[in-house]
């Protein structure tokens, strides 16, 4: 078996008596297009926070490219190629779109601690950030403050910030959340066009999005993995329909 891009072994997380992650085993293959679905409160975002190190697991191991990262800080995991987006925008609202992405590129390029040269000497960093905006089709808004940009485009900035890190593994937490139907297509096109080198885990509510992008699906219920399989298997699974799709009586 090849080394997984990201692997989780026996992951548990309790808040007191409340179990939010229950013995989760999970593999994200290199170049994967993997979706994580589950009803509200299933622990999807908690799972992402455990992966990124915002939360520490009660027990279990997390491996990134075969290396144990369970004890590493968020920053160290990012430096090893683990990028994420947030379900609710986490952007630098008072800064321009270009500066948002420049901060991320500068951090990845290792120039952000530089105190004695002006930022302008690192022109390549800004150009790379601008190139990323062009790729995502938001270069026109480069100099606008993020808070002045429409929500749909803010979601693209959210993705741009993650891509700026050149991640090997990308965790997308409901990338199209809150975006009107018409605009969500733009975001999905961006996600679909991502490099096949990136292993992607997408957390999503919207089944259209899931079935369009994912090659594999994991269903999470009450902090535990219910089932994993191809989209066809998941769509046909009786248990999933009962627990998640809620079609017990009128399926």
């Amino acid at each position: 078996m090849t080394t997984a891009a990201l692997e989780v072994q026996g992951l548990n997380k309790n808040f007191g008596a409340l179990v939010v992650a229950n013995a989760i085993d999970f593999r994200l293959e290199p170049g994967a297009r993997h979706a994580l679905i589950g009803p509200n409160g299933a622990g999807k975002t908690t799972f992402v926070n455990l992966l990124t190190g915002r939360l520490q697991p009660t027990s279990g191991r997390i491996l990134l490219g075969g290396d144990d990262i369970t004890a590493l800080s968020q920053e160290q995991r990012v430096k090893r190629g683990l990028g994420r987006t947030f379900q609710i925008n986490q952007l630098f609202k008072g800064l321009s779109v270009l500066e948002n992405v420049t901060l991320a590129v500068g951090e990845r390029a290792g120039v952000a601690g530089d105190m004695f040269r002006v930022a302008g000497t690192h022109r390549g960093v800004v150009e790379e950030a601008y190139g990323l905006l062009e790729r995502l089709g938001i270069a026109d808004d480069a100099l606008k403050l993020v808070r002045e940009v429409p929500y749909g485009r803010q979601r693209l900035v959210e993705i741009a910030l993650a891509l700026a890190l050149n991640p090997k593994v990308l965790l997308l937490d409901e990338p199209a959340a809150g975006v009107p139907q018409g605009e969500s297509k733009v975001i999905l096109d961006v996600v679909a066009a991502l490099s096949p080198d990136i292993a992607m885990l997408i957390i999503e509510h919207d089944m259209d999005i899931v079935f369009r992008i994912a090659k594999r699906i994991t269903v999470l219920v009450q902090g535990a993995v219910l089932i994993e399989g191809t989209p066809q298997e998941i769509a046909a699974d009786r248990q999933v329909r009962e627990v998640y799709l809620g079609e017990r009586d009128h399926g």
Binding site: Q74, R108, F116
Partner: peptide
């Protein structure tokens, strides 16, 4: 005006995101 200084404004604007970009 240094990259360090710019990153401080990032910390002011959104600490959560700063952690997430390493």
């Amino acid at each position: 005006h240094s990259p360090f200084g710019r990153s401080l404004t990032g910390i002011r604007e959104n600490v959560t995101r700063m952690h997430a970009i390493g």
